[in-house]
Amino acid sequence: MNDTSSSVNSYRAAVCQGRSVLLIIAAVTLCMVGVAHAPLPDAGLRTALVLVAAGVNAILVAGRLMHVLQERHVIFVLLAFTVLFFVALMGLCLWAHGDTPKP
């Protein structure tokens, strides 16, 4: 009996959590669109802000909905390596591009 009631409770908690995650994502997305159209002096700053907002959304989806935060060691190690190699791929490509002497 205890088991059923706790699972009902956890389902209610999940509904609450889902609702709040959606609200935050919606708010952040609207902010992002707002920032993108705001008359900011620096295009680089605008891009940075937009990407930060996207990062917040991504963390919410990955951390909460994909429950990475509660995930096991194995998954963390895997994700850490993947992110590392992704950064290496993009970073080194761009570095190579930037370091190429212009004719």
Binding site: F85, A88, L89, L92, W95, A96, G98, D99, T100, P101
Partner: peptide, 21 residues
Amino acid sequence: SFIVWAHHMYLTGMGTRISTF
């Protein structure tokens, strides 16, 4: 092995710093 790939590309006009890396 993931961060050595551009040694196949030394002759593409890469800069000296990246080629040192």
